[in-house]
């Protein structure tokens, strides 16, 4: 699994596929203040991204992949 959920945080690693978006959406429904950790994420399917955008998620850790981080900056706020 490319997304691991902790108490109040969704931690991404590697590439998150489209299938994971459903779970993410569900989780965000239950944790409206949920934070996002993209540190180890190299790519995420846009289904995940738009779910996070809709939820107005805050990114706590930017991706260490500079390219991805720059893209995400245009879509999500980072603390």
């Amino acid at each position: 699994m490319a997304i691991v959920y902790t108490k109040n945080k969704a931690v991404f690693s590697d590439a998150a596929g489209a299938e994971e978006a459903e779970t993410l959406l569900e989780w965000l429904g239950k944790h409206p203040k949920g934070k996002i950790d993209l540190g180890a994420c190299v790519h995420l399917h846009p289904a995940n991204l738009q779910v996070m955008m809709a939820a107005g998620c805050l990114v706590t850790v930017r991706s260490s992949d500079q390219d991805l981080a720059a893209w995400i900056d245009s879509a999500l706020k980072t603390i």
């Binding site: 978006a21 289904a47 245009s74």
Partner: peptide, 23 residues
Amino acid sequence: WGGIAAREAWPELAEMDAYNCVL
């Protein structure tokens, strides 16, 4: 350079379809 934008206003999460691409 690249950027992402939503085509429409975000719906309530409960009504959202994760697989309807609006980006």
